[in-house]
Structures are given as C-alpha cells and as structure tokens.
C-alpha cells in the first residue's frame, strides 16, 4: 500500500498501475465463501454448467472487493469510501485473467472520483466501476 495520497498528488486523467488478476477456481470459490455467497454457480461446476455457463464464475461481491482493494492500495490507508457504482459485464471464468485499470475522473477538495475497469482477456469487460473516495484532510 502506498503512502496516503493528498488531493495535490492527484489530477484528472491520472492513471493507476495496471493489476492483472489470474481467475482461478480457488479464487472464485474461496472469495464467494469469504463474502458468504453460497449460490451454487460460484462453487459447483456441474451446477454452473447446467445453467449454461462453462464453469463456476465470480460473484459480484468479489468484483467489488477486488476493486476496493485495488483502490485502497493506490490511495493509501486513510481515505474513506463514500460510494461505489458498478456496471456488470462479462463473467470471470477460471483460466482467464482480469486486468484492473483505473483513471481519476474528478478531484474536488478532498473528494476524488476514480473509474476502475476490469477487462477479462477472453470475455471482455467484466466490470466498470466508479468510486467516490474522501481523502484524509
């Protein structure tokens, strides 16, 4: 995690370092359980296939959690999350890689808006998020 960013360190258009995340059965299933999401499509491959998917797939709470962690590592420990809007797209299926990228969209006082896009290398855009963070004064 970096030092706490201040608003003077942040400008519109600034990009965050890319973060590729390998999507594995372990990540999909263990993260579903860590978010207490017991829907079978996230841990039972045969069930997921019976619903038309090739394999188990990542749950939304994990997409949000990975986005939060990516932003936390960039902004530092003190900033407070105020809002996270998420548009959902293609599924995250084991055997693929999702790369997170971020770009600062606005800076007003201590309030920063950052867009995060998670691009799956086989299936396309998995998630497009807009986060509102409040920096420590």
């Amino acid at each position: 995690m970096t030092q706490n960013l201040k608003s003077r360190d942040i400008s519109v258009g600034q990009t965050l370092p890319e973060r590729p995340i390998p999507i594995t059965s372990s990540l999909v299933t263990c993260a579903a359980l860590a978010t207490r999401d017991f829907e079978k499509v996230h841990h039972d491959k045969a069930f997921a296939q019976s619903s038309g998917m090739p394999d188990v797939y990542m749950n939304i709470l994990t997409s949000q959690g990975l986005t939060e962690t990516y932003l936390r590592d960039w902004v530092g420990r003190d900033a407070v999350f105020r809002k996270l809007s998420v548009r959902l797209g293609a599924p995250n299926i084991p055997g693929t890689t999702m790369t997170l990228r971020g770009e600062v969209k606005s800076v007003e006082g201590n309030t920063v808006e950052v867009e995060v896009v998670g691009q799956n290398d086989k299936w396309g855009m998995h998630v497009k998020a807009l986060a509102t963070l409040e920096l420590a004064g």
């Binding site: 978010t35 017991f38 709470l61």
Partner: peptide, 17 residues
C-alpha cells in the same frame, strides 16, 4: 470493516446451497 463488506453481514449462508 472494508466498505464493500456492507452486504456480507446479512447474507443468508449455507442454506442457499
């Protein structure tokens, strides 16, 4: 707690499966 755990606390649990 992490912010996006907001929805985790009230999850139904294993009964869903």
């Amino acid at each position: 707690a992490p912010a996006t755990m907001l929805f985790v606390w009230n999850q139904t649990g294993y009964a869903v499966a």
